[in-house]
Design a binder for these strands. Sequence first.
DNA 1: TCTGGGGTCCTAGGACCC
DNA 2: TCTGGGGTCCTAGGACCC
Length: 416
Amino acid sequence: MARVILHADANGFYASVELVYRPELRGLPLSVGGDQEARHGIVLASSREAKRRGIKTGMVLWQARQLCPELVILPPNFSRYIDFSEKLRKIYQEYSPRVESYGLDECWVDISNPDVSLEDGKRLADELRRRARAELGITLSIGVSWNKIFAKLGSDYEKPDATTLISPENYKDIVWPLPAGDLLFVGPRTKPKLAKYRIYTIGDIANAPDELLSQRFGKVGRMHQCHARGMDESPVMAVGTETAIKSVGNSTTTPQDMSTIDDVRCVYTLLSESVATRLREAGLKGRCISISVRDAQLNCEACQLSIDHHTALAGEIRDVAMQLFTSRGYAHMLPLRSVGVSCSSLTSFYAPLQMDLMGKAASWEKQLKLAKSVDQIRRRYGTQIIQRGNVLANPAFSGINPHDDHVVHPVPFYAG
DNA sequence: TCTGGGGTCCTAGGACCC
DNA sequence: TCTGGGGTCCTAGGACCC
């Protein structure tokens, strides 16, 4: 059985999509922005001009704007990116039912078959690149290998618009000389720790004594070593495979710092409304509420509390958030730049209430009915058509709309 | 002017129960 | 009465991904 796995990475995804939808901008051949682009807007500038001004990919927007005041900056449009992401996936699915998304712009495609070789995989990769260019107007970098980790690594190896084949014959030449941090899941914290043991390259990880990595880094260390040796058997999930949601949360950096408890309550109200609505949309309720805060000096704190029942009501989530906020003394951190609230320990929305809460059941049902009516009205007329009093009373923050302003596209973490 | 906001998983220590 | 082991739950904190 020949395992043949492709990993396709759309180059400059967000900016490319903008160019497709706004052909009038085609004259500007280069996009700038890196991972900032989806959050703050898309920056487009002529490549020669951008280079001359010192603009780099991944640069923070205000810096780029400073270097080039006439920069074209477009606001992000997530529904458009999702639409585009699906179009790409449709193409992949013509070749295999096993297509697994990794974020909006990356996918694994598994074409394993007794009759298929890695060379066939390379030919398919070239065809996919040609089609993506012709049909969607964007370029792909594709890695082809016999496992997901090396396929992913191959898609990063050469860009843009390239295919990299990593085979059992050539991986020691291609993969092993690369820096350790190029291996998926070896991040900026782990890299210096590995260097302490004179482990600098992926080859060093592969050839380190087995006990060293598992003793120093536990389960994850063993996983890294397997990955470096090409021993990754994890499957590519079939289209439509649903992974259970583990938590639902929203956080936001406010347009101006929150300086009073009332400000904080206002923002937690908005965030909790969004979290509760999203829980209901997903058919879930949760009983562990966590909050996070960040002050103007970027100090962060976080804590959580499990309550005695599951909820999907904004009021309850907000009250627990505020209870945590005051009881942990976070008020001393004011003024705050950013706060977040998240709900985990999830169960089905329809799971029965516990017996000792049956007395409250009637009131809970009533509140839920109200919440669902509000959901309906908001779906029809917009999220901000109905707002709570304490939010309306605080115009500095009432414009925040966490429910509509984000795109959910979780990246699964898998420990080999 | 000084890096979003959304997630997942792993580990360790303490409380509690059998 | 003292001690120990095993299991589960809770919480905080760390690490990683796009």
